[in-house]
Simulated assay, not measured.
Amino acid sequence: MSQPAATDKSRAEAVKELMLQNDAFSKLLGLQVDEVGPGYCRLHFVVRPDMVNGFGALHGGVTFSAADSAFAFACNSHGRQSVGLTVTIDYLEAGKAGDTVTIEAREESLKHKIGVYQVRATNQDGVVLALFKGTAYRTSNEIL
């Protein structure tokens, strides 16, 4: 039984590497992928001064983009190309320059054509900054 799990984890890693090869935007944000697995991704980034808004708070677009990237790694981890259908985000607290933000995406439901994911953004103190929910359409295109 552990063999399929290792294969699934290897597939998720291979998909992540393939996706990162041409993901200039994730590189621009400085996203560091810490772990991927079937239906799962954890990444982090450090909030730079150019990522804050006019009030000194982490720009919502940065938070959204990082959550969207974690969502993408998680929903494509099974080896079928997936695209976002619907996403929502609730901003709960403001991050600030110097914060280390961790984004964790977890699969809640996986069907033949649809996957649903919950994504949490937290700072280095464990404070939840945002909650993101994404629904993905799973195409028939095999990634690997």
Score class of each variant (00 low, 15 high):
residue 1 M to D: 07
residue 26 S to Q: 12
residue 115 G to P: 05
residue 91 Y to D: 08
residue 67 A to K: 04
residue 35 E to C: 09
residue 14 A to I: 03
residue 4 P to S: 14
residue 92 L to A: 03
residue 63 T to V: 09
residue 122 T to Y: 09
residue 39 G to E: 10
residue 135 T to S: 11
residue 103 I to G: 01
residue 22 N to S: 14
residue 80 R to H: 15
residue 30 G to D: 09
residue 84 G to C: 06
residue 51 M to N: 03
residue 28 L to H: 15
residue 40 Y to L: 09
residue 92 L to C: 10
residue 103 I to Y: 00
residue 36 V to R: 06
residue 129 L to C: 09
residue 18 L to C: 03
residue 63 T to E: 03
residue 104 E to D: 04
residue 144 L to Q: 08
residue 8 D to S: 07
residue 64 F to E: 02
residue 34 D to W: 07
residue 106 R to A: 03
residue 112 H to P: 04
residue 127 V to T: 15
residue 45 F to Y: 12
residue 111 K to R: 13
residue 98 G to M: 12
residue 60 G to R: 02
residue 49 P to Y: 08
residue 71 F to Y: 15
residue 67 A to S: 14
residue 109 S to L: 14
residue 21 Q to Y: 00
residue 103 I to F: 10
residue 36 V to L: 13
residue 4 P to M: 01
residue 99 D to C: 08
residue 42 R to F: 00
residue 71 F to P: 08
residue 59 H to M: 13
residue 123 N to W: 07
residue 15 V to A: 07
residue 101 V to T: 12
residue 68 D to S: 06
residue 100 T to K: 13
residue 69 S to R: 04
residue 2 S to D: 13
residue 116 V to D: 04
residue 102 T to E: 09
residue 130 A to N: 08
residue 22 N to H: 15
residue 82 S to R: 14
residue 39 G to M: 09
residue 122 T to Q: 09
residue 130 A to Y: 01
residue 41 C to Y: 01
residue 105 A to D: 02
residue 76 N to L: 05
residue 96 K to G: 01
residue 48 R to W: 09
residue 34 D to N: 09
residue 123 N to M: 10
